[in-house]
């Protein structure tokens, strides 16, 4: 089982034949630009960098509410691949309302269920990249929180 909103997305994709999966991925990719920070939003953590696993700069922004629920925003450089754009929208929406712990516990096996077997291939491994980056920021936040609580 995945977090409720992510499960809804997985269920949606699972019911689609491959051509419609692709169309739906394109729709999600189209909305990737909307996942960036909006004016006035503030975040506990910001991680903006270009590293070797991705073709362009990716910024991950995390806000954590008092009840430990999370709110992610993500910015993408123009050279990022379409699948990565789609996964950005899917994860920002799928993680909405999840706690830090729920984000960290999400297994990566939902990715092939969404992307489809024929699109999971050597150079589509970067679809995991955004998930890794979001979990990385969540880990940093949790470690800082633990350190603050034990201080």
């Amino acid at each position: 089982m995945y977090p409720a909103k992510l499960q809804q997305i997985v269920d949606l994709f699972s019911a689609l034949p491959d051509p419609e999966k692709r169309e739906t991925l394109i729709t999600y990719a189209d909305s990737a630009k909307k996942q960036g920070p909006r004016e006035g939003e503030t975040f506990e953590l910001e991680d903006v960098r270009k590293d070797e696993e991705c073709t362009d700069t990716v910024g991950v922004f995390l806000k954590v509410n008092p009840d430990r629920t999370t709110h992610f925003r993500v910015t993408l450089g123009p050279q990022v691949q379409t699948l990565t754009k789609a996964m950005t929208s899917i994860l920002c929406k799928g993680f909405e309302g999840c706690t830090i712990e729920e984000v960290l516990d999400v297994p990566a096996d939902f990715v092939p269920k969404i992307v489809g077997a024929d699109l999971v291939r050597q150079r589509s491994q970067t679809v995991y990249y955004i998930l890794t980056r979001m979990k990385g920021v969540a880990t940093v936040w949790r470690n800082r929180d633990r350190a603050a609580q034990s201080a």
């Binding site: 692709r22 394109i26 691949q81 379409t82």
Partner: peptide
């Protein structure tokens, strides 16, 4: 290389041939 790029928009009249 980007497997979905053609579907996001292509030159009018172009067909897609996937390397793999």
């Amino acid at each position: 290389e980007d497997v979905l790029l053609y579907s996001t928009g292509h030159i009018p009249g172009a067909v897609h041939i996937d390397w793999r």
